[in-house]
Design a protein around this nucleic acid. Structure first.
Lengths: 360, 360
DNA sequence: TTGTAGGCGTTATCAT
DNA sequence: ATGATAACGCCTACAA
């Protein structure tokens, strides 16, 4: 290292400069498309074309540009792209609560599926309430996202369809159609029927049902599946056994309390989502009822945690992560002008230890 | 100034809005700053100034502009703002796995805290691996985020500090300093000590420890807390009782298996996070060991789910949501040029039902 | 205090 | 096929 003492008048700057220049060759700072063009000896437009595959370019120039991009470490600026009328390369995702174990899985799937295409998700929470949800979409639109994925939600179909006029949309958990709108949902009804039938096959006939908020289609469908199964087995429906709840652990626990207060007989519970089942198990324990010894219980969704509850939960596999990934793929297809097609797995019962044969 | 390009068709003024929007290429509610300026009879720069509080503006004009903004429903375009060198009004957040019950809570806190300031979070997952994390930050930077919040992660301090030269950063779960860099972390050591001391106070002396990956400071600190407690109680450390794991449910379950295979006596387990505790409870059950009858267990983090496990988990409250909110506030302060100051709650033991007095 | 002009990095529209 | 040259919507010197 050159000592300062000798550097009284000696220009120490040149040394510094050269050192910096040396480093500047590395792909560190902000490299613009224009710089790439300069290095490749072509016009910015050409670089842009190559980047977007907008037009055919001679092999020679393409190679030169590719080289320049690589050595310069150029990465197109999504912000500028967005402004120029191009895409922002970001997809808005309307979820309800980002920290929910259910939505979390879906978001994860979306993130991964989008990443490979260079898109970034913008997550906003609707907090299970219409106003927030509307505002969330508003935010997304002002951010000029290239598309919006809506997971469930409370906005009515008409509103969503209208929105799809300004952005391509993918709606999960609803059935609605439109030009730039695609929707799909898991077969909740079949899944719920599966769960209930399992309980019936184990000899249960007094099966309580824990319901989610019926403003949601999936909650309704799961109820239908339950009713289907009872009807098929000629088991009369007892309204006393049907509990309205909210898909949360606390709600599940509360529902069990209400059920017990009704003082009706039951030997099993179909909880229409896993989270309520967790609460229900605890609620039963509080009344000295063991699962599955005294009461059998089947959930719905097969969250990660369901393998680790005590006892591990028998439930319906929902493949939430995959659902998210499919939603993302569908959006990508939409953006490509293609017709999305999703291949969703059929509901499947995952037998663990929370349900057993009815005694007697 | 009619700088319209030589349009092929008649310049259709968007004054009349058609009810049946057939053209999906133009978002409907796009009002520009320029339009606001025109309506208010001022120049665009004046509007901009009012928006950003950049300069003092006469009350008359301000009122006119405010009115124009309101009636036109103008919302500044963050994309354009970002390009113009202004802020993008978005904050990058590096998490490890968006679907983790732990990180999910933190993200939720960040989202809410940021929202009130008009910022939007951009979540990217590092997947517990250095390369992905680096790439995640890369993505964030190319998106021109105004700041980056890093939750734990594997990047080394030096790298983070260097990064903070280009963006203000808030790092949670690390201790490092810098001009535009702020970090803070929960007192993991004290928390772990609390948990262990609780077990000791219940008469346990053979206490197993389930550890997270020691590349993370928090895992190390929690181990230290455990050791502190033992030392203070004059209980010798038995390496056989210390299990290296990974903070997952599966890892916790596996750790218990390994522990049992070692065939050493133990009456309690301090699991350094709740997720491992869930797995441990199941693992113990598989060996016919009941919690807390046969083995007491204390967790760490107090995730929502810990209230609903069987039995409900005694654990250390971590206030993850608040931590996220604090990180966001700190970032906001940094952006404001202020010095962030966080007020993190001290660790606190939450006594539930997974730990009880040791039988002898 | 307020307006004018230039620029941010890309894409799109013209010519050539 | 390729290159100028406008936009895109906003911010910010620089003027006035």
């Amino acid at each position: 290292m050159p000592t300062k003492t000798a550097a009284k008048k000696a220009p120490s700057k040149p040394a510094e400069r050269s050192e910096r220049t040396e480093r500047a060759d590395r792909p560190s700072g902000v490299v613009t498309l224009e710089q790439v063009a300069a290095r490749a000896g072509v016009s910015p437009s050409t670089v842009s074309r190559i980047l977007n595959g907008t037009a055919t370019v001679s092999e020679v120039k393409r190679a030169a540009v590719d080289e320049a991009i690589r050595t310069l470490g150029f990465r197109p600026n999504p912000v500028a792209r967005g402004l120029a009328g191009g895409r922002t390369m970001s997809i808005g995702v309307v979820t309800q609560r980002i920290s929910s174990p259910f939505y979390g899985e879906a978001l994860s799937g979306i993130e991964v599926a989008l990443e490979s295409a260079g898109y970034v998700p913008l997550f906003v929470s609707g907090n299970w309430n219409e106003a927030d949800e509307r505002k969330a979409i508003e935010t997304l639109l002002s951010r000029r996202v290239d598309g919006v994925i809506v997971l469930a939600g409370r906005l009515d179909n008409k509103e969503l369809a209208a929105l799809s006029a300004s952005v391509p949309m993918v709606v999960v958990g609803r059935q609605l159609a439109g030009e730039r709108l695609f929707s799909f949902s898991f077969d909740n009804r079949a899944g719920a029927r599966l769960a209930t039938e399992h309980l019936i096959s184990l000899g249960h006939r007094r099966i309580a049902l824990l319901l989610g908020d019926l403003v949601h289609d999936d909650a309704i469908d799961r109820q239908s599946g339950y009713l289907d199964a009872l009807a098929a087995a000629n088991i009369p429906v007892d309204p006393e056994l049907i509990l309205q709840s909210d898909y949360t652990e606390a709600g599940g626990m509360l529902a069990v309390s209400r059920l017990m207060e009704r003082d009706v007989a039951f030997s099993a519970i179909f909880s229409s989502n896993d989270q309520m089942a967790y609460g229900a198990i605890l609620g039963l324990a509080r009344r000295n009822l063991r699962v599955p010894d005294d009461v059998s219980i089947v959930g719905f969704d097969d969250l990660i945690m369901s393998r680790y509850t005590m006892p591990p939960l028998t439930t319906v596999r929902h493949a939430v992560y995959e659902t998210g990934a499919q939603a993302a793929s569908a959006m990508l297809a939409l953006l490509q002008g293609e017709k999305p097609r999703v291949q969703l797995a059929a509901p499947e019962l995952v037998m663990r230890e929370s349900a057993r044969r009815a005694v007697r």
